[in-house]
Nucleic acid binder design. Structure first.
Length: 778
DNA sequence: CATTATCGGGG
DNA sequence: GTGTACGATAATG
């Protein structure tokens, strides 16, 4: 059997952990009340212990919070000190008493989420086969002991989930008013659509309530351990919850669902079921133009699916002839979500096994937090106190810390052909290990032969905490890569995910050292790593020159070089030679070949591969609150540059568009600006154009509320933009503020690409005389 | 200049 | 819930 999740209940003076286990085809809950919350206190005044007793044993209301105070010795840094380990009844007692205790003692481990605390302390492995000994008390199964099992690994059942809602107005649907009209689900067996109006290829129920209940029955029968969604944290799950409240539907899926956070930072959690929202995972893992479900399915998976614009869904539902298409779209959403899950869930589960924390948390954690989960566990295993996170004053200071980054080469601005992209990422882990970079080794008195270009030295006498862990991770990765050579099928895929997870984790240590919220923050270490990195990379650059390769751009973890024609052979030879000269643990990798690229400034570039696929970095492309003409012009400019290598053509195109705007040759819908209201009208301190227009709409009797998308146009006139803005649907052919559209929309959208290349407003605006040396073209 | 507000994903 | 976002950009004041 395996544990795939856990939570806890605090009642009857005991904190009881619930372990959700899968045992063959059966899932059940095993309880454990053998562990209590606690914090550590290092006394700093004489009567500390007595004072603490007063706080925790009997507070003002004579409520007993502490179960026991144990005297222990713990390592903190290089010291070994006496500490009080204060066991408490419930996790929420910790924030209640910690500030009081802090007056008499230095407190530690006071902010560790209880389930994390439990898993670390018990050394409880998640998702690994276990044998468990249990006993039954009060009809519940309680854990006595567990041990690793040689049994077969369990496979978790995954189901995807997606809803469609009815919403006639602009903006997003409101669960208080707009019903769910379809629920789709997909798993390894197939896909299902639930709905409540006559519709082909669907299970048709009599109303919304019956539909949701029918879906829940299906969910119970199918009983997946993992639910995957696309943005389910912020949309589908909270929406289902709200509808169930309104429709008085009771089911464990919604009764126990917890929505945490607010706005677009929600998480939606269901006890005993692992909800994995794929949207944040895809966003942090792959670089694509946008992260809409359709885009991910196309650009990452290489597959097409039907798309219906959100604002049109209600029309498809109202029209019996179109309803089947809507069901098809909904089904495809669920299938796409499931298939994207097939790509990413295995990675998350491997990461779960490495850090031994809940998959729900692991799947939502940044890479820095994953590193921290691992370090906390290892720290504890070493018998050391876990360092506290920075307090807000320290944090503010750290956010202000700047250190010389890792820029290696400023980009050679402009368009370049035949670009090979080399990746240095594995260099940083190697530097950390090689130079023993760690807080515990920083600036010793003895090792003056291991000095970074920053002047900081790192002691080589004993292996540092972080280098030791990193070395283990990299060795494990090598072992797995080795096993992959003789593996195939499922086994190969599993190994692949394992080594991928290890790679992500290993590559995150450098970032973690410079991450302001880090418990093991070390600016000196981080800047020493980049400084050493620059040495190695500069050396590579020098060698590249010797090969006749031009380095177009280099940043923290990447290097772009240009060849004559597509000289793959030369690039590979170069790579091999470099890797022969680098220390064994360091490796330069070739990540890709691009037919053409445009480099604008550091961190801003765009590349096109041989299939015409464009990749951009730092050149944010499309935003809803840009006009259509600005988006379109930017897209065409990028295409002209990358597909045709034609900057002059791109500039001519922009000048043409500015002319079209002035002459009224741009369709009005391309000039409409859509902006969403995020507050009620009275709350605005500064009145932007969309707020002004929203007020006018309200005067007119329109339903204006939070979430409404206001569409407006800017008319000719003087003064602030808001004074010239009118609702788009009131436009009757008046003169538009063409200067606004040229100067505030189109030119800024392309200037972020063209300005750094030396083309200013005067080159891009047809009313002005080109100033650049390209004026001969006009 | 500083401050305030919006974008993303989802329908 | 022993915790919570962020980085970039545009308009107003």
């Amino acid at each position: 059997m395996i544990i795939f999740d856990c939570d806890y209940v605090a009642m009857n003076e005991t904190t009881t952990v619930r372990l959700f286990v899968k045992d063959g085809d059966e899932c059940r809950t095993i309880y454990d009340d053998s562990h209590s919350p606690y914090i550590y206190a290092f006394p700093k005044v004489d009567d500390a212990e007595k004072s603490i007793m007063d706080i925790v044993i009997v507070n003002k209301e004579s409520i007993v919070k502490a179960k026991e105070i144990e005297k222990v010795e713990r390592k903190y840094g290089k010291e070994r000190k006496k500490a009080l380990k204060i066991y408490l009844q419930y996790p929420f007692h910790v924030p209640e008493i910690r500030d009081e205790i802090a007056k008499y003692a230095d407190i530690f481990e006071y902010d560790i989420i209880y389930t994390r605390r439990y898993l670390m302390d018990k050394g409880m492995p998640l998702l690994s086969p276990l044998d468990m000994e249990t006993e039954t008390r009060d009809g519940k199964e309680y854990l006595l002991s567990f041990s690793p099992s040689k049994g077969k690994p369990e496979t978790l059942k995954v189901m995807s989930l997606d809803i469609e809602t009815y919403c006639e107005h602009s903006g997003m649907p409101d669960p208080k008013k707009n019903p769910i009209i379809m629920i789709s689900a997909a798993d390894s067996e197939g896909s299902h659509v639930f709905t409540w109006q006559e519709c082909p290829d669907s299970k048709v129920l009599k109303n919304e309530k019956a539909m949701i209940q029918s879906f829940f029955e299906f969910l119970d029968a199918s009983s997946p351990q993992i639910i995957v969604t696309y943005n389910g944290d912020n949309f589908d799950l909270p929406y289902i919850l709200k509808r169930c409240e309104i429709l008085a539907i009771s089911h464990r899926f919604v009764n126990d669902m917890k929505i945490k956070g607010r706005g677009n930072t929600n998480t939606a959690e269901i006890p005993g079921m692992v909800h994995i929202d794929l949207f944040p995972i895809v966003k942090k893992t792959v670089n694509i133009s946008r992260y809409k479900l359709e885009t991910v399915y196309k650009e990452y998976m290489g597959k097409d699916k039907k798309d219906i614009e959100g604002s049109q869904i209600w029309r498809y539902w109202d029209d019996p002839c179109l309803r089947g298409e809507l069901a098809c779209y909904s089904r495809e959403d669920a299938i796409a979500t499931y298939e994207i899950g097939e790509q990413f869930v295995p990675l998350e589960l491997e990461m779960t096994k490495i850090v031994d924390q809940r998959p729900f948390e692991v799947s939502r954690a940044s890479s820095s937090l994953l590193v921290e989960m691992l370090l906390m566990k290892r720290c504890q295993d070493n018998g050391e106190i876990i360092p506290n996170p920075p307090q807000s004053s320290v944090l503010a200071k750290r956010y202000g810390d700047t250190y010389e980054g890792a820029y290696v080469v400023e980009p050679i601005k402009g368009v370049h052909d035949n670009i090979f992209y080399f990746d240095f990422r594995s260099l940083y882990p190697s530097i950390i290990i090689e130079h023993n970079v760690d807080l515990s080794t920083l600036d010793c008195e003895c090792c003056k032969d291991n000095v970074a270009p920053t002047g900081h030295c790192f002691c080589k006498k004993t292996k540092g905490f972080i280098p030791a862990i990193l070395e283990e991770l990299l060795m494990e990765r090598m072992r797995i890569k080795d096993s992959m050579k003789s593996a195939s099928g499922m086994r190969y895929r599993s190994l692949y995910s394992q080594q991928w997870a290890l790679k992500i984790l290993a590559n995150s240590f450098y970032g973690y050292l410079g991450y302001p919220r880090s418990r093991w923050y070390s600016k000196e270490s981080a800047e020493s790593i980049t400084a050493w990195g620059r040495q190695y990379i500069n050396d590579v650059i020098e060698q590249a020159k010797g090969w006749g390769l031009e380095v177009v751009y280099g940043d923290t973890d990447s290097l772009f070089v240009k060849t004559e024609g597509k000289d793959l052979e030369k690039a590979n030879e170069f790579l091999k030679t470099i890797n022969d000269t680098l220390p064994e643990s360091m490796e330069l990798e070739m990540e890709g070949y691009y037919a053409r690229g445009v480099f604008v400034t550091k961190k801003k570039y765009a590349l096109i591969d041989e299939n015409g696929k464009i990749i951009t970095k730092g050149l944010e492309v499309v935003r809803r609150d840009w006009t259509g003409i600005a988006k379109k012009t930017q897209r065409v400019v990028l295409e002209r540059i990358l597909k045709d290598g034609d900057i002059e053509g791109a500039i001519k195109y922009v000048r043409g568009i500015t002319k079209d705007i002035r002459e009224g040759n741009v369709p009005i819908e391309d000039l409409v600006i859509d902006t969403q209201l995020t507050m009620s009208l009275s709350q605005y301190k500064t009145i932007g154009p969309h707020v002004q227009v929203a007020k006018a709409l309200k005067e007119r009797g329109e339903d204006v509320r939070v979430g409404t998308i206001v569409s407006y146009l800017v008319l000719k006139g003087t003064g602030r933009i808001r004074d010239k803005a009118i609702p788009a649907d009131e436009y009757k052919g008046e003169q538009l503020d063409t200067e606004y559209y040229v100067k505030n929309q189109v030119i800024p959208a392309v200037a972020r690409i063209l300005q750094p290349l030396g083309f200013g407003e005067e080159d891009l605006d047809n009313k002005q005389v080109p100033q650049s040396n390209l004026d001969k073209w006009f």
